[in-house]
Design a protein around this nucleic acid. Structure first.
Lengths: 337, 337
DNA sequence: TTACGGATTGCACGCAAGTGCAACTCGATG
DNA sequence: CATCGAGTTGCACTTGCGTGCAATCCGTAA
């Protein structure tokens, strides 16, 4: 048990010789306090090290200022970059980020949302997994905003932020053809989330239109190791692909490393590779990877804006969905056409 | 304004036909409630979607369950890995992580700690920067636990977790000498935090003892780009170093990439490199970097243990300091001696 | 001097929980 | 049948804060 406690408004009031209300009003913008009272309160607060108790304030205002971020695999470059941007923008908007880790187990996201409810978070932003519909409804009923990032879901209510995955897949197929590639392949993870599948389908559709078939291989997670395994599977095929679109940059890094160091292939001369996310490593000269940039900043901006303004029931459902463009970052892993 | 609100214990009590106290007791382990009442309360709570308000509970218990993590550069591999481990272990300990981003500006950490105080966090864990002494004291006086990770500081009170940076520097100097290196160098950032300086000093001391001088160059941050610049500076010297210890793995990655792709050097034949942190990229075959592993799990375990048990004033000051060992991970960026 | 008006102040209540205390129930024992 | 005691239950108070309402202050105009 702590021997001493946080200092309360009561103590400040006593020291300043005013009522507790005066202290409260001093820290409430727009409230009526005389300059003199305000000064004395601020002095006392400073001397005692007083800080408004946001737990209690949240209780009163029915607005905690907390926004819950629900994520798995935080240590992943793309995830941590998005997280960084979200927390910074939330802080600038006067909110504070609460952080809940999820794993792949059933109900993990649901438990995370329950935690958000317990702390009366003003909003929850979900970067991984998909919550059960009943929990989603409970959150919305309770007046909590909800944002789903890159999780295609058709439940009405939450703000859904997605990318043009399908179109991106198409663009890269065109780039491969222009580079003279003859055998295309798509390297995906087993997970098959909607965004990954969108890239895959867009890639296949465009390639088919251009008269090329696409070999699809799926394995493991979206990480580096899976990329290596996919390379081993694909590059030992009778007809070796010479243009490979990897569903994520991490897959692409693993793929490239295996292609170079195990198969002795030269990129982009013998093999063209593209990724998705534009993680920092993609720009490293070891990879120099052509890829699509996740509009991390725009995603965060949209999410934070929604928390501040949106969420009114009467809005049309279209207003609850945002599609952002993933910009193609041209580097050196595809031959110039 | 939210049209509907979170459901309160009062509503559950009415639906279950009991008093509000009964609801409270049902959700308080060890409280006296009959099996029948408990069942009816749980049924009503389930039906209404009730979850205890942790803001109010925190107010009463004077224990919010919140632990504040104060970090800069979250998107960095080492930081995000530590963050991941901390949040997971905090969750397992029944705590919830609150997240505050800091930048390099003055008072950034102080503002973060004030945020922690406002939300009456049970503890704050500081991964970046160093707070002002007055704020530290305020936190401790308020009964808040404090953990400083890799920030050498001599203030009594907080738990300080540090590594054997100095000894690690020594080990790697020995390894370089054993590999036949003749010209040693240390690549550091301008920042010069105690942990970075510890590695530097340990490296120099051991090298000197072995009869070799060490060229030290400092530039920028601890990131990839700074590593490239350092390589350009060091590898154009008259006497080119052939054994370089980089203060972090990211520096080492940048250094190696520049050494290979701009200077055409072969690693480890013409140049030995070592890093520190053991980020995921160090194990990628493009780098295959010999480095020291941050004991991320042990760090988190120590921190969380301290929150649960430690922090009693009467403990000797030695109990407030933990030194952990960074394990040398031998890969292929240093020749076998 | 008195009345008026605007600004300031304090009281008291409410938010959602936990808990000591007293009252209550109920079965068992004397 | 009265008493005891263990087990439940509810009342009322507490936590730190915001805020409506009524009371007060002060300066100015009638």
């Amino acid at each position: 048990m702590p021997s001493k406690l946080f200092v309360s408004a009561q103590e400040v009031a006593e020291r300043a010789g005013v009522s507790r209300s005066a202290v409260s009003r001093t820290f409430t913008p727009g409230a009526s306090v005389s300059a003199d009272t305000r000064r004395r309160v601020l002095e006392a607060a400073e001397a005692l090290g007083y800080h408004v108790n946001h737990l209690a304030r949240g209780l009163m205002r029915n607005e905690s200022g907390i926004v819950c971020l629900i994520v798995s695999d935080v240590a992943t470059p793309y995830r941590s970059a998005l997280l960084r941007e979200l927390t910074i923008q939330l802080q600038n908007a006067g909110k504070v980020a609460m952080f809940v880790n999820t794993d792949r187990s059933d109900g993990s996201v649901d438990r995370a949302l329950q935690q958000a409810i317990r702390y009366r978070a003003d909003a929850s932003i979900i970067l991984s997994g998909l919550p059960d519909k009943s929990i989603t409804q409970l959150c919305l009923r309770s007046g909590q905003r909800l944002v789903l990032i890159n999780r295609d879901d058709d439940q009405p209510g939450p703000l859904k932020i997605n990318l043009d995955d399908y179109e991106s897949g198409g663009k890269i197929a065109t780039a491969f053809v222009r580079a003279g590639c003859r055998t295309l392949a798509f390297a995906n993870s087993e997970a098959g989330t909607p965004s990954l599948m969108g890239r895959e389908r867009g890639f296949i559709a465009a390639a088919t239109k251009l008269g090329l078939e696409v070999v699809v291989e799926r394995y493991g997670s979206t990480g580096y190791e899976a990329g290596r395994v996919l390379a081993q599977r694909m590059l030992t095929r009778a007809e070796r692909p010479d243009g490979v679109f990897c569903a994520t940059d991490l897959l692409a890094c693993g793929f490239m490393d295996a292609a170079r160091h195990q198969f002795g292939l030269s990129i982009p001369d013998q093999l063209c590779v593209a990724g998705f996310d534009d993680i920092e490593q993609a720009s490293w000269s070891s990879f120099n990877l052509t890829t699509f940039a996740q509009p991390v900043m725009a995603i965060a901006t949209q999410a934070v804006k929604w928390l501040a303004t949106g969420g009114h029931e009467e809005e049309p459902e279209e207003a609850h969905s945002v599609r952002l463009k993933a910009e193609l970052i041209w580097r050196g892993s595809i031959r110039k056409g």
